[in-house]
């Protein structure tokens, strides 16, 4: 049917007749729907599937998980807690970078600034510090949980190894961060820690010099530890966390008593 001038007039008239608020509602709904296609609170199976499936941040999860893997007494939530701590550390760490300066003469002053002149600077530093200590402990406990539940057995051998790498990265992140406040505690802990490395035959001494950028802990060491702490190690950590999560799904979700005696075979979920 051809569109006549009269029909156009009617359509325009209709639009004028509508109130501003109702037109804004339509506009807002269009914007909202362009972002989230499946409503705010999905209640049916289809909506619940799409809510996870169509969201970049949620689609790390499978659409369905086994009830067993949700039991708090089974996992103690340790893997999730470790991830949460890593996210909090990334957030507070980037925030701290706005105030920090990796200089042997300036770094310590910045610590004092965080205590005195930066609003809630002490909270920021304290949260970063306690989250870091907690992450080392939680990652070790997570490994213990996986061992005591036999969850490293086929088909999860590789994910156990990724977990060992993540534990080592966690220790290295904590260790490199330890130097940055540039106080007596930091300086001598790193001096002791790096001297342990030099006991290794052949490779020990070169490794220590490479880490410190010299014979002793100084300005060069501070810059190296800083770059490792804020770029290289968190980057590696993110990559290996992604592999860790990916493999959980490729290995048919978390370990489950039903797997006992069956042949080892992973499958996508």
């Amino acid at each position: 049917m051809p569109i006549t001038a009269e029909m156009r007039e009617t359509a325009r008239g209709k639009m004028h007749a509508e109130s501003f608020s109702s037109r804004f509602k339509v506009f807002w709904k269009n914007v909202y729907r362009s972002l989230f296609r499946y409503g705010r609170m999905p209640r049916d199976a289809e909506g619940q599937s799409y809510a996870v499936f169509n969201n970049l941040f949620l689609h790390i999860h499978p659409v369905k998980v086994s009830k067993h893997s949700l039991k708090f007494t089974y996992t103690l939530g340790l893997g999730v807690i470790a991830t949460i701590l890593f996210l909090i550390l990334t957030f507070t760490g980037i925030w701290l970078m706005f105030y920090y300066f990796p200089s042997a003469t300036e770094a310590y002053n910045r610590m004092l600034d965080l205590r005195s002149s930066v609003d809630f600077g002490f909270v920021l530093r304290n949260v970063h510090k306690w989250a870091a200590e907690a992450m080392v402990a939680v990652v070790i406990l997570h490994m213990a949980r996986v061992f005591f539940t036999g969850a490293y057995k086929p088909p999860r051998e590789f994910n156990w190894i990724v977990g060992v790498i993540l534990l080592l990265l966690t220790l290295m992140l904590s260790f490199t961060g330890y130097l940055l406040p540039w106080d007596q505690l930091a300086f001598w802990a790193i001096t002791v820690g790096t001297s342990i490395a030099s006991y290794a035959p052949v490779l020990g001494e070169p490794l220590r010099k490479f880490l410190l950028g010299g014979d002793t802990v100084g300005q060069e060491a501070l810059v190296r530890f800083y770059v490792l702490h804020v770029v290289i190690l968190p980057g590696l950590m993110s990559i290996f966390i992604a592999i860790h999560f990916w493999r959980i799904r490729k290995d048919s979700g978390l370990s489950h008593p039903n797997e006992n005696g069956s042949s080892a075979r992973g499958g996508a979920t």
Partner: peptide
Amino acid sequence: APLEEVANPNHPPNPAKAPWYF
């Protein structure tokens, strides 16, 4: 979070300890 005096290479504490996990 602990914060001691500024780093001083001439005054090693006794004993100098690594972070707790080491």
